[in-house]
């Protein structure tokens, strides 16, 4: 189904979705939000693109196989959990540091992992279902 309105609108929407998803991801540390919901929003953006211009086009826009994105998310989460090891903390304990005046933590890395895993997982499913139907 090709619709001029949807394809044109999708271009605006996808950018909006992606930026908003990053905002939700980052604000999730102390306020409602976080990796899971952020990942869902980002996946929605690409899903709309897939509906508007076809799965092949959405895959091209994504550049990377969504399954790889999902596994990279797993890698991030594992790294966040394992990071505590060399520093002598308990498994999956939060590790905090400061980079240029900003506090960064393994918690954020874990959340980014969740974000990527959700984006990858959902898009794998949506693309696969769209292609088989």
């Amino acid at each position: 189904m090709k619709s001029l309105i949807l394809t044109t609108g999708a271009r605006l929407l996808i950018a909006l979705f992606l930026v908003f998803s990053l905002y939700v991801l980052l604000r999730g540390h102390n306020a409602p939000g976080g990796g899971f919901i952020g990942g869902l929003i980002a996946a929605c953006g690409f899903a709309i693109h897939a509906f508007a211009s076809g799965v092949a086009e959405a895959r091209r826009a994504l550049r990377v196989d969504p399954r790889v994105i999902g596994v990279l998310g797993l890698v991030c989460a594992l790294a966040a959990g394992l990071m505590a090891w060399p520093l002598g903390f308990d498994p999956f304990a939060g590790v905090w540091g400061e980079v240029a005046g900003y506090k960064v933590s393994s918690v954020l890395l874990f959340d980014i992992g969740v974000y990527l895993a959700v984006v990858g997982g959902i898009l794998t499913l949506i693309f696969a279902l769209e292609e088989t139907l």
Binding site: F36, G121, L125, A128, L129, T132, L133
Partner: peptide, 17 residues
């Protein structure tokens, strides 16, 4: 719910197959 969603999606894909 999240896990259930994943399982259901897989089951749906399997049904199509």
């Amino acid at each position: 719910i999240v896990i259930g969603f994943g399982l259901f999606a897989f089951a749906l894909a399997l049904t199509i197959r």
